[in-house]
Computed example of a mutant assay.
Amino acid sequence: MLEVTGIEKRYRGRTILKNVSFRANPGECIGIVGGNGCGKTTLLSILAGIRKPDRGSIRIDGQEALGRHRLLEEKIAYVPQENPLIPELTAFDNYRLWFRGKRREMERDLECGVGRVLGVDRFLKTQAGRLSGGEKKRLSIAAALSGRADILILDEPGAALDLEAKEQILTYIRSYVKAGGTVLLTSHEMGEIGACTTLYVLKDGVLVPTEAGLSARELIQRF
């Protein structure tokens, strides 16, 4: 279980996040929507341990996670909107670089694990710079999940992808949640928003639950 309490963050005199609190249980997909620049990426990067909040608490299965990088790495897989791949290296070399485990574990992952499920095994010899947007995203997700994390955090996973790639990512998100994982994502995509079990709106630094009965299309139109 992920419990976020009272997260606040200021940047250059501006309050980006104000007392952000929510809970995410196993088997849930939590969606956060909001306008560009509202603080969604800042919030996700704090949850992943990339940035520090000015105050607040992040507890995972009852344990305080802020400042405990080993716990965050073990429990959370974070896929930013911009992929971290090195374009000159092949997909295989990028996977080996980011994979959290031994070589044999990586090979097994490509044979029957998340790497195989996401189809990474089909383009291993291709330079990362020549991969499609969907292939880069799948490779980034597979590498992030190599640590067998319980919580998957995705920042705009379907952004700039074609319809087929969006559906492939969405299919994996659903299977991850069905298997008992927790997903937290930001999105402007109707399909991804529709797959969420709980939705929040982040506006003026405040995170609030969405109105009952509000459709994914209506949410997108508001932002």
Rank of each mutant, 00 (worst) to 15 (best):
N94A: 10
A149V: 10
T42I: 01
D93F: 03
A165S: 15
E156Y: 00
G180E: 07
E164L: 13
H188N: 10
N36D: 15
M190C: 10
T90C: 10
K75I: 03
G37L: 09
S140V: 01
N19H: 13
G13M: 06
G194H: 02
D155E: 06
E218V: 06
N25D: 13
F123N: 05
T42V: 09
R148D: 15
S187G: 07
E3Q: 14
A143P: 04
L219W: 03
L185S: 01
R108T: 15
P84N: 08
R59D: 04
L110F: 00
A142H: 00
A160R: 14
E135G: 02
R100N: 15
L199S: 03
T210L: 09
P209Y: 06
D162L: 12
G101P: 10
L43N: 02
T171K: 12
S146D: 07
E218G: 08
E82W: 06
A128G: 05
R103C: 02
G101L: 12
R68M: 04
R174H: 12
P87G: 09
S140K: 01
D150C: 10
T210Y: 05
V79W: 00
V183Y: 01
F223W: 09
G56N: 11
K75L: 08
C112G: 08
A159E: 06
L44D: 02
T41R: 03
G27H: 07
R51L: 13
D61M: 08
G31N: 00
I76R: 04
K203N: 14
L199Y: 02
G119P: 02
K9C: 01
R108F: 07
L185Y: 03
G191C: 04
E3Y: 06
D54F: 06
E73T: 11
I151E: 04
A149R: 13
A142S: 11
Y200V: 11
T182V: 05
G213I: 01
F22Q: 10
G181M: 01
L89S: 04
V33L: 04
L161Y: 03
I86F: 15
T210W: 03
K102N: 15
D155V: 02
G205P: 02
A165C: 08
E28F: 02
F22Y: 13
M1T: 10
K125A: 14
G13F: 12
A143Q: 01
V183W: 00
Y78F: 15
C196A: 14
I50V: 15
L110S: 00
T126Y: 04
G191Q: 04
L97S: 11
Q221L: 15
E8G: 15
R51E: 13
D150F: 01
R222N: 14
L199Q: 07
V183D: 01
C196I: 11
K9L: 11
I220T: 07
M1N: 11
P53Q: 09
G49Y: 06
